[in-house]
Each structure stands twice: as C-alpha cells, then as structure tokens.
Design a protein around this nucleic acid. Structure first.
Lengths: 145, 145
DNA sequence: TTACCTGCAAACGTTTTGCAACTGA
DNA sequence: TCAGTTGCAAAACGTTTGCAGGTAA
C-alpha cells in the first residue's frame, strides 16, 4: 500500500486552480473520498457526508464527484447494475482480482510501469495507470487445486 | 482481430451442458452477439433479435445475456450512466477502453502474452487472459486535446 | 455583487422483477 | 409431463436535471 499522494489541502488548491469554489460540501466530500481505504459508492459517500452536513443532498454528492473526476482527483469505476464507485488516486491502481477467492492484490509500481510502457508502445493507447483490473487465479488458489 | 473461436453450434452445446435450454430466443441472441464485430448494448441486441422474433421482450434479452455471461460465452463491460455492452469471447480479451470516447480496442496476442508473463513472474498470479480491462485515453482522444 | 453552488423534487434510462402462459427435452 | 423460459407490465435502481434560493470570492 503506498502512502497518500495528495492531501486535502492540495485537493482544495486543485479545486481553486480550476476555478471551482471550495465550499464546505466539496471539502467534506474530498476528505471522505481521499481518506477512504475502500472505493466508496456515491451512496456511501453521501452517507458519510450526512454525518457532517445532515442537510446535504445526494445530487450535490453526484455533482461534486463529477467535479472531482473532471479535475482528476478521483476516478470513476463502473459496475454492473449502473453503480459506480470512486477511487482516489492515493492507492495502487493495478489490481489482480482472484476469480476464486475474490482476493484483490495490487501490482507494484515497477511492474505497472513496465506493462504501461508495453501497452503504449504497441498501441499508442495511454492507460491511466489508475485503472487496470486483471482477473485470474491467485497463487493460493492455484496451489489448492 | 482474430477469427471467431466459438461457433454458434458450440454455444448451443455450452448452453445444454450447463442445463440451460437452447430456445429459439437464446439461439438468436447467441448468433447476434457472437457474430457482432462491435460490442453491442443490450438495447442493440434487442433491436437485432426483434428482426427475427418481433415479439421478443427486452427482459428476455437481459435474462439471456445474463445466462451467456454466467456460462462465460460473453463478457459484460460496464459504462458510466449504467449502460453495459457485451463482448463475445471470439475477439482478443485484453481490452483497452477509452475513458473519453468509449472506444474499445483489443490488444494483440503478442502483447497479451508479454503482459501475462510479466504478471505471472512478478506475482505468481495467473491471469485468465480473457478478462483484463485497461482504462485510459486512446490515441485519437490524446490528439484531440 | 455576481457567478457559482446547493437542496429539493421530479425525471430519466437502464435493468430487474413477478407472474401467468408457454415450451423444449 | 413439468421445470425452465417467455412476454408483459410495473417497479426498482442509480443517476441526472431544472430551478429557486443561498453562498464563496
């Protein structure tokens, strides 16, 4: 697990530099998403913000998450049934997901860089490096069977 | 683009071997998804099926696509706003998904093999090679901005 | 002061569900 | 025969939108 790269303060700066106002709602939402170790759904972010700002609306959460996505503070990951979760760029982002036990492991930076380079060279496609999900069987499950 | 690996006939077999009935609706939906060069949305599959079975319902299309996904004949790719498209396993399966325009490109076999090897060596994790989604920005969109 | 942000409620589009009728094996 | 499948309609779901009032800069 890498350490957080972006503090709440720099997130506020990022907002301002893109001419977005740093309102209490946005600061709260930033704090929640940036400090989350899980990748929260919009609804979960909403539930958290409500603890601090009980009158906040879900619409504000969605609008803010869109802003945060636009200025690259978070990334949206889409799931079946139309749900999306939000991933701040603080955690490693190339995940190995075991189809048997569901374990999620992150690739180390070196491997990510190598893979990214390979993809860029052969396709001119630029991976975000923040979103690469590889499904397969983990070592543990390989041994079991 | 590789050639199709699985024929309609073997798809029907796959259905039967998993104790699903090979009904006319399912066969039609299989044919459409398996022969599609694009990755159709559920609605697009529905539009196609209707040409053959005008009374088919969208619910049946959804239920069938779920079955096909369960028996690994197709893969679901989720997009923002709750839309999903369906990818038959006939095409290579390491997809590059552009976060701007939504274009989906497949990696060639050579690149897939290299990446797979890299992952296996550094983590002992065994990718299925059928499910690896890499998100980023395609060449076209890179140039635009 | 003013452009931007917010909360509310209604709308939206995709997907899911319940159920009675139907059908493949 | 009968469990599994279908079409229909309605519901559910997450998300988006329009707007009047509020707020940061």
């Amino acid at each position: 697990m890498t350490t957080h790269l972006r503090s709440e303060a720099s997130a506020i700066e990022a907002l301002r530099s893109e001419r977005y106002k740093a309102t209490s709602r946005r600061i709260a939402i930033c704090r929640i998403v940036l400090n989350s170790r899980t990748r929260p759904l919009a609804q979960q972010v909403y539930d958290e913000v409500k603890k601090i700002h009980p009158t906040v609306s879900l619409a504000t959460v969605y609008k803010t998450l869109e802003v945060l996505r636009d200025i690259d503070l978070v990334q949206e990951i889409n799931f079946p049934k139309g749900q999306a979760c939000f991933d701040s760029y603080m955690t490693p982002h190339m995940n190995l997901i075991c189809l048997k036990c569901g374990a999620i492991t992150a690739l180390d930076d070196k491997t990510i860089k190598k893979i990214t380079t390979k993809v860029i060279v052969s396709t001119k496609f630029k991976p975000t490096e923040q979103q690469m999900d590889i499904y397969g069987i983990c070592q543990k499950c390989s041994n079991t069977k």
